[in-house]
């Protein structure tokens, strides 16, 4: 590792100030599970590393009308939290399929999002849940829909000095369902080949028919950023869920993916998996308990 200055400020303001001072040569450290690997490999050589781990405000997880999920909350804490398990089971389930127990003790939701890996698992379900990013700068704050937070592979919307403070997630209404399924080579310690999150606000339109009042389909690991399959959403929104419509939506979702070949899978396979994962989750909604 190249030498760097280490800071561990107690407030978001101080952290933001240091990061702003160092500009592109400063890096925020939360769980460290990505940052330290990149630094050890010499991919990143920051002059300043600013630990966010003394800042209590970043660790809050509270329900006030909506869930405020502090950026510094670990995946392990999400899995164990009553709020996540009760109101947002998709988050607990997603976290529990990431890496392994040991890494989940360190890795944070904010770190997963800020690294902006195309395969970041927390992004698709959070976008499907309609989450917003709460961003604090040196002397400003702003809130961004999470889907606008990702700019490119490894690139997020933060400017130097800005810190992702929390994620705001609206409380789900009755009849709201959200799931995330990914495909991996192994059952743990792996990265998604492809992942799909589906959320839907459902109503009964007839005895056994589910109407899709609203829907989001978010694709992971198949585009430079987590990506909504808007054409697939479009043909479902406001309509009854039928097998034919679901097949069509799954095909559309696959066509909206922009996968590449890499060490985890080929583009053709990833595209096809988007169709399978989308279809399976939509089919499950046909019998969702209302």
């Amino acid at each position: 590792m190249k030498p760097f200055e280490f800071f561990k400020p107690a407030t978001i303001g101080d952290a933001s100030k240091i990061l702003a001072d160092y500009g592109r040569e400063g890096r925020a450290l939360a769980g460290g599970t990505d940052l330290l690997i990149r630094m050890k490999r010499g991919q990143w050589t920051p002059r300043a590393v600013v630990s966010l781990n003394r800042i209590a405000a970043l660790r809050a997880m509270e329900m006030n009308g909506e869930l405020q999920l502090g950026a510094r909350v670990t995946l392990g804490e999400i899995i164990r939290s009553a709020e996540a398990r009760g109101q947002f089971p998709v988050l607990a389930r997603t976290a529990s399929k990431m890496a392994g127990v040991q890494v989940r003790s360190l890795a944070t939701v904010g770190g997963n999002l800020c690294n902006a890996s195309p395969s970041a698992d927390m992004a698709p379900p959070l976008i499907a849940l309609g989450a917003r990013a709460d961003i604090a700068g040196r002397d400003h704050e702003r809130i961004l829909p999470l889907e606008d937070f990702f700019v490119g592979p490894g690139q997020n919307a933060l400017v130097p000095g800005e810190i992702l403070r929390a994620i705001f997630i609206p409380r789900p209404a009755d009849g709201f369902f959200c799931s995330y399924v990914k495909l991996e080579h192994r059952e743990a310690m792996d990265i998604a080949i492809a992942g799909v999150a589906v959320s839907a606000q459902l109503a009964k339109s007839a005895a056994e028919i589910r109407n899709c009042l609203d829907v989001r389909i978010v694709l992971g690991a198949v585009a430079p950023v987590p990506r909504r399959a808007k054409r697939a959403e479009e043909i479902l929104r406001g309509n009854d869920l039928t097998r034919e419509r679901i097949q069509e939506a799954a095909r559309l979702a696959a066509s909206e993916a922009q996968p590449i070949d890499d060490v985890r899978g080929s583009a053709w396979y990833r595209r096809q998996m988007i169709e399978v994962l989308t279809r399976r989750q939509l089919l499950a909604l046909m019998t969702a308990p209302l």
């Binding site: 460290g32 599970t33 330290l36 630990s51 127990v101 040991q102 890494v103 003790s105 360190l106």
Partner: peptide, 8 residues
């Protein structure tokens, strides 16, 4: 439990 190689 945490991997001590990923902690400063």
């Amino acid at each position: 439990p945490a991997p001590s190689c990923l902690v400063l």
